[in-house]
């Protein structure tokens, strides 16, 4: 067997956390049709804030605090685009750059932070029972519960009138301009919601790793995009609920592929290449399917003896 239960569990834990970032990109990239590149910085911000609040002795407050930090970051990105006319990609890059300093400041001007030995949400959950099965699986269960709650709330949110307005903003800009929706408002709300999820993911990563490094967010946007694309390719673009499930599944599949690569002794140096390959294959999949279908059709035609 290629994967032990242990590595599978770790892969799913990471998958659960990363699917929050993938969901954030689902909101900004797929729904709002905006490339929000502040993800890396916002993710680190989430874990910096989460770690600081946890260290201050508020393990439960860490999650909402990290989300709030994400909301603020999203608000700044949205403000730059909607009020100051900064191109959306640039707005993300600017915020991302600025966040580096902000993150250092939050972490007390140190480039890493450890929360070993501090009570965290996850360690408290683990301590609820002595049962070995529970201590082994509690982290995944807690993460699963949080993820499920987020997924359900997100799915419900996008069926409310505000949610519908946000979806319309990304779906047809012309229509939105001619209807009573204020795109500046919907973009702002959308980016705030998206970045709150990124912040939450950052915070949870910090709690799982028990340490946090200023550079841990680097490349996050690519990984999340890969998960998002795997999900959308496999599950299609039907109802919002199904798409959210797809994003989560995509993220878990991505982590499992990485775990398989690890188990197959692919050297760590090659990981970025593996990630890039996964993304390329996922994006190329629909086109590949079309090509295969076309070749089959041609082959069938030839068998019938028709001229071609």
């Amino acid at each position: 067997m290629l994967l032990s239960v242990e590595t599978l569990r770790t892969a799913l834990e990471m998958g659960a956390i990363y699917s929050l970032v993938a969901l954030a990109l689902f909101i900004s990239f797929s729904i709002l049709n905006i490339a929000d590149l502040s993800t890396d910085g916002c993710y680190t911000l989430g874990f910096a804030v989460g770690a600081i609040v946890t260290l201050a002795g508020h393990p439960f407050l860490a999650l909402p605090a990290a989300m709030l930090a994400g909301v603020l970051s999203g608000f700044v990105t949205a403000f730059l685009q909607t009020k100051l006319g900064v191109e959306s990609i640039l707005a993300g890059i600017i915020v991302n750059t600025g966040l580096y300093t902000v993150n250092l400041a939050v972490m007390g001007w140190s480039s890493n932070l450890s929360i070993f030995g501090t009570d965290t949400l996850l360690s408290l959950a683990k301590g609820l029972s002595e049962n070995t099965a529970w201590t082994r699986w509690s982290t995944l269960i807690v993460l699963g519960v949080i993820l499920t709650a987020v997924a359900v709330v997100t799915a419900l949110f996008f069926r409310t009138r505000l949610g519908l307005s946000i979806r319309a903003t990304g779906d047809n800009a012309d229509m939105v301009r001619a209807s009573s929706i204020n795109p500046a408002f919907t973009i702002t709300v959308g980016l705030c919601v998206a970045n709150s999820l990124t912040g939450l993911a950052g915070c949870l990563t910090g709690l799982v790793n028990k340490s946090c490094d200023i550079n841990l967010g680097t490349g996050m946007v690519t990984v999340a995009l890969a998960s998002l694309i795997i999900g959308e390719t496999m599950f299609g673009r039907f109802s919002i609920g199904l798409r959210i499930v797809g994003v989560i599944a995509g993220s878990c599949i991505y982590r499992i592929i990485i775990a398989v690569a690890l188990a197959a002794n692919v050297p760590t140096e090659c990981f970025k290449l593996v990630s890039a390959l996964i993304v390329a294959v996922a994006i190329a999949m629909p086109q590949g399917r079309k090509l295969i279908a076309l070749q089959r059709q041609k082959l069938a035609r030839r068998k019938e003896g028709a001229p071609c």
Binding site: T160, R161, L164, S165
Partner: peptide
């Protein structure tokens, strides 16, 4: 130009319905 292609007919109509005073601030 007048409708959102990836949203259902019902969702599009719900959006148009936003214009009523009753719904203008009923975000949720």
């Amino acid at each position: 130009k007048g409708t959102a292609p990836h949203m259902t007919i019902e969702e599009n109509l719900a959006l148009a319905y936003l214009r009523t005073a009753k719904h203008q601030h009923a975000y949720f």
